[in-house]
Every structure is written in C-alpha cells, then in structure tokens.
C-alpha cells in the first residue's frame, strides 16, 4: 500500500513537471514579449529594460524555467528598485496588473471556489445517484422514460442557461431568494448557504445528469452479475438487491469519478462563478486572460493541474476501498 502511494506520488510529480514545462513554454517563450505586457501600455524603453532585468528575460530559457521552479519550491527574491521583496514558496511571481503576489491573489479567491465546488458536488451525488437508482428500480416504466429524458435535457443545458433560468424564476419573478452575492462561510454560515444555493443547484443540475446515467449503467451491469442472480434465486426482493446488495459495487466507480471530477470542478467553476458573480479562482482566470496577466494564468493552470492529479489518486484509492475486488498495484 505505501509502495503504491510512493509510486503514485512520484508519477504525479512527473506529470506535474511535464505540465509545467508545457505551460511555461506556451506562455512565456512562444509569442509576444512578457516584458511589454508586464510594463503596461505606457512604457518607455528605459522602463522596459528595467522590467526585462527584473524578470530576467535575457537569461537563457532553461535558466528562466529553473528560476520559475525555484520560486515554486523555495521562494524568490525580487528587486523592486528600492529594495528587495521576498516572495515565499510557493511563489508564482507577481501579477502584471498590480504587482501583488500571485499566490496571495489565488488564496483570496479559493474559499469561494471551494464553497461552490464542495456544495455542488454534494448535491450532484445526492441527485445523480438518487435518480440513477430510481430509474433502475423503476425500469421499463414511465418513470424511467421520464428520467432518461430529464437527464438528457440536463446534459444539454450549460450552466449559463440553467443559471439564467434559476435567476429569472427565483430572484426576479418569485423573489424567493436574493440575487446571489458571496458571503464568506466564516462570516455568516446561514447567509453563505442561502447565497450559494442557486449556484449549487445550477452546477448540480448539469453534473448530476452525468452521474445519473453512470449510476444507471453501472447498476445494470452489476445486476447482471452472478451473485445478484443468486440473491434473486433466494427470493430477495428487487428493491433489497438494488438498495443493499448491489449498491456497493455499482456505486464504487461513481464515487471514484466524483473524486476525479472534484478536481476538475475546482477549475471548471468559472462559468458558474461568472454567471453568479462569485469572486472565485475561475473568475480570476477569466479576468487574467482578458488582461493577459501571464503569471496569474500560469499559476492558476498549475494549481488546477495539481488539484486534478491529486484528485485522480484519491479517486483510485476510494474506488479500491469501495470495491474490494480492485487491488491497488
């Protein structure tokens, strides 16, 4: 088991390094001049030279990349002209926009994104596994047909459509809920939940359809297995089989997928965040792309990459824990 973790951790580090090389190459080396971007629109040649020096853009590329890695792992010192500014590890450099440390910028935005992703994932699992199981228990009937079409509709509805619809119905017409504005969980848990409700539902509607389909096909597969036939032969009711005996094996891959998805959800929330005006990492990414703030873009992509890789490992472990036939090797 510990050997397994060691190997996976090593693999994860390698994948992340590979991602970092690709991202670094794409963003800093390929087209354009980072110095010009960092210096801003009104920039005289003297300032440009200073910026080039500060960002060490005249160094060979591999050295620049090495400094970037150094910053991430041990921190980095910047000369600001008047003094030295230390940027603690993990340091992704300074934002071109306001010279703030990128790590700080992201840390400020993480609570909103994590709130959104965690709540939406919980709701997704509840809705997705629930409807998936229901459509198996009631298969061959009206309920199943209705659920099939509902999940299809759910998959075809991007967050910005379901989000708009929810806003129009619940905030504009019925006026049951306030227009969402982010309140930190630590400030006021009740207000936090009320304001996050619509974003959660909007994201969960889309995601749970995927989970419903997967739960359904996974459950149907499990029901075709021999041990289930044995249960049937013993006269165990269909409901007990679905609800108790087959559940574990059928839900295992779904839970594993949820862990993986949680990683990408942390990165995939930018639509929901933009839709509902949540100050999260996704919104920061969109803003940074529009202002070509490369250090922030690179850092966010790296952080999300790391989240996904780690989530993958957790997913594998959960899968093995839920289904004992799967051995971790």
């Amino acid at each position: 088991m510990s050997l397994y973790f060691l190997r996976r951790a090593l693999g994860a580090v390698l994948v992340l390094l590979a991602i970092s090389v690709v991202i670094y190459a794409t963003f800093y080396v390929a087209p354009g001049d980072p110095a010009k971007l960092a210096c801003g629109p009104r920039c005289n040649p003297e300032q440009l030279r200073q910026v080039r020096e500060q960002l060490s853009l005249d160094d060979p590329v591999y050295l620049q990349y090495w400094h970037f890695l150094q910053g991430v792992f041990v921190g980095h010192d910047y000369s600001t002209g008047t003094g030295v500014m230390h940027c603690d590890a993990p340091c992704f450099g300074l934002s071109y926009q306001n010279d703030q440390q990128v790590t700080e910028l992201i840390a400020q935005r993480l609570p909103a994104t994590l709130s959104l992703a965690a709540g939406a994932m919980a709701l997704t699992l509840l809705l997705g596994i629930g409807t998936g199981l229901l459509s198996v228990v009631r298969r061959g009937g009206v309920v199943e047909r209705a659920l099939t079409w509902l999940t299809l509709a759910g998959i075809a509805t991007p967050v910005f459509i379901s989000g708009l619809a929810l806003l129009m119905v619940f905030c504009a017409y019925l006026e049951w809920l306030p227009f969402p504005s982010y309140v930190a969980l630590t400030d006021d848990p009740e207000q936090w939940a009320w304001n996050m409700l619509l974003p959660w539902v909007a994201l969960a509607l889309l995601e749970s359809s995927k989970y419903a389909r997967m739960t359904r096909s996974s459950m149907l597969e499990t029901l075709a297995e021999d041990h289930v036939r044995t249960f049937r032969a013993y006269g165990v009711s269909e409901r007990a089989i679905v609800g108790r005996h087959a559940l574990r094996g059928a839900v295992a891959p779904v839970i594993a997928m949820a862990a993986v998805d949680f990683g990408s959800m942390v990165g995939g929330t930018m639509l929901t965040e933009t839709m509902f005006g949540l100050p999260g990492v996704g919104q920061l990414l969109v803003h940074s792309v529009q202002t070509v703030d490369l250090p922030v873009v690179v850092a966010i992509v790296m952080v999300i990459g790391a989240a996904v890789v780690i989530a993958n490992i957790i997913g594998d472990v959960l899968y093995a824990a839920a289904d004992r036939r799967v051995a971790l090797r």
Partner: peptide, 24 residues
C-alpha cells in the same frame, strides 16, 4: 499514452481559455 492522460486530466475550459491569452 502519458500525453493522452494529461490531455484528459486537464480541465478543457481552463486550458482553452488560457491558450487564447497568448494568441495575437
């Protein structure tokens, strides 16, 4: 296969959006 795995793992929208930042 490793490259393929990485491509699957990366959140599409994040990378797609990030890429548009560096194109003229």
């Amino acid at each position: 296969s490793r490259i393929t795995e990485v491509m699957i793992a990366l959140p599409l929208l994040v990378f797609a959006i990030a890429l548009t930042a560096v194109v003229p």
